Computed example of a mutant assay.
Amino acid sequence: MKNRGAKPTFSTDSLTVEIVNVLEELGIEHETYTLHDYVDIDALEELVASGNANIEVRITIEGIQLEITQHGVQALNWPSNARNSSFQQSSHAE
């Protein structure tokens, strides 16, 4: 059971770092895109920190769909040439 009052486990800076790290693990170098062209990080952090533990935000950056929750960032898909073969596709039902 999820704790509805849970606070996010990251700050805006660490949310940015976590997104960049997930993308880099998938072979998308941070020099090839500008994160703010895809998402307003401050607004995203505020939304995730709103106190509703059920919030899941999905964004697509450079073709990679990410799911952001209070618990972190998860890639839902990845390119076939991903550097880290330990990533496993999420089986979230939509």
Rank of each mutant, 00 (worst) to 15 (best):
M1S: 05
K2I: 15
K2Q: 11
N3D: 15
R4L: 15
G5M: 04
G5P: 00
A6N: 00
A6P: 01
A6F: 10
K7A: 07
P8F: 04
T9G: 11
S11P: 10
T12I: 15
D13W: 04
D13T: 13
D13A: 10
L15H: 01
E18G: 14
E18K: 14
I19K: 01
I19Y: 08
V20R: 12
N21E: 14
N21T: 14
L23W: 07
L23T: 08
L23Y: 07
L23F: 12
E24C: 03
G27T: 12
I28C: 08
E31I: 12
E31V: 14
T32C: 09
T32S: 15
Y33F: 15
Y33L: 08
Y33Q: 00
T34E: 12
L35Y: 02
D37R: 05
V39L: 11
A43P: 00
L44Q: 01
L44H: 03
E45L: 11
L47R: 03
A49M: 00
S50K: 03
G51S: 07
N52K: 04
N52H: 08
I55T: 14
I55D: 09
V57T: 12
V57Y: 03
I59Y: 05
I59C: 02
I61L: 11
Q65A: 10
L66F: 11
E67D: 11
E67H: 00
E67W: 00
T69N: 05
T69K: 00
H71R: 06
H71K: 09
V73P: 11
A75D: 04
L76Y: 08
L76I: 13
N77K: 03
N81I: 10
N81S: 14
R83K: 14
N84W: 08
S85H: 01
S86E: 11
S86F: 12
S86D: 13
Q88M: 10
Q88T: 09
Q88S: 09
S90G: 04
S91N: 13
H92P: 00
H92A: 09
A93Y: 05
E94N: 10
